[in-house]
């Protein structure tokens, strides 16, 4: 299972790109996509999911150009978009049956599987109620269920944890880890903690370009021994922010504790263990 993205661009107008000359090869496992708003994450995912077409480049799955034969990937795709809706008058069973029919799954055999999925996502009790009456988290779980209906080999989750409570998030992470045993799972999120515990590879995007693509260790290595924490007076904070890459701030008695990245730390700074969030912010702030 190999997905190749070759020199892909999505141009909206003459000088406006959603994605520019983007290349990447994705193998089995979990790929975490990180990037600020407008980085091009959703644009990339939509193109892989054949929802949108690139203006240039190729996307190849197992030597098949999916831009020419979209149905090749559609047969083995599970896609959870960032913003999706439901037909409010259908109940969960009916809606999933409809999606199953869209995906071309045999009608008789799908009943049991839908039941299994709804049970696994703790929706079985509400399965006969119209989806219009569901909460946001319940709808999100319906979205997860539909992505798994067709035993997908490529699974794309765009901001999947939106609306899920902390327990559901943990269960969802477990599910993704299980899925990645023999699938390509591409996971996009604003929340670094959703990705750092499970992603085998991490790609960081900004302004439609790929800033970094590696495993987490290599990414974090870039800022090893460069992360510090120091307590400063509140009135010095603005000046400090102008001269350093500040990761986060928190109140500490009458001072402000600042976590920052620097090659020449100021006096009183204490070295910290670098993590994925530090590496991500360093990359996006310095590029």
């Amino acid at each position: 299972m190999k997905l190749e993205i070759k020199n892909v661009s999505k141009r909206y107008s003459r000088n406006k790109y959603g994605l520019k000359d983007f290349s990447m090869t994705i193998d089995k496992g979990i790929l975490g996509l990180l990037g600020p708003n407008g980085a091009g994450k959703s644009t990339l995912l939509k193109m892989i999911a054949t929802v949108s077409k690139p203006t240039e480049g190729m996307i190849i799955l197992n030597k098949n150009n999916i831009l020419k034969d979209a149905n090749y990937i559609r047969k083995q795709l599970g896609f959870l978009p960032q913003d999706f809706g439901v037909y409010p008058n259908l109940n969960a069973f009916e809606f999933l049956q409809y999606i199953a029919a869209l995906k071309g799954i045999a009608d008789k055999e799908i009943q049991f599987k839908i039941e299994q999925l709804l049970n696994g996502l703790n929706l079985l009790d509400a399965a006969k109620k119209p989806i219009g009456s569901y909460s946001g988290g319940m709808k999100q779980r319906i979205g997860i269920a539909q992505a798994l209906l067709n035993d997908p080999k490529i699974i794309i989750f765009d901001e999947p944890t939106v609306g899920l409570d902390p327990e559901e998030r943990v269960r969802f992470r477990n599910l993704i880890s299980d899925l990645a045993q023999d699938c390509i799972v591409i996971l996009s999120s604003h929340i670094v903690s959703d990705i750092d515990t499970i992603a085998d590879q991490v790609a960081v995007l900004k302004n439609g370009s790929l800033l970094s693509y590696s495993n987490q260790e290599k990414l974090i290595d870039r800022i090893d021994q460069k992360v510090f924490e120091v307590a400063i007076n509140k009135e010095h904070l603005d000046n400090f922010k102008n001269n350093n890459i500040v990761i986060s701030t928190s109140r500490k008695e009458d001072k402000i504790a600042v976590r920052y990245i620097s090659e020449s730390p100021i006096d009183g700074s204490v070295s910290q263990t670098a993590n994925l969030e530090d590496a991500y912010l360093y990359l996006t702030k310095t590029n």
Partner: peptide, 24 residues
């Protein structure tokens, strides 16, 4: 419907037990 009202026993999806789909 809120998920809290519906929760009795918490389940997880067991991928190995999921029925395989056939195409139509």
């Amino acid at each position: 419907f809120s998920s809290e009202k519906q929760k009795t026993t918490v389940h997880e999806i067991e991928l190995s037990k999921l029925k395989k789909s056939t195409h139509n």
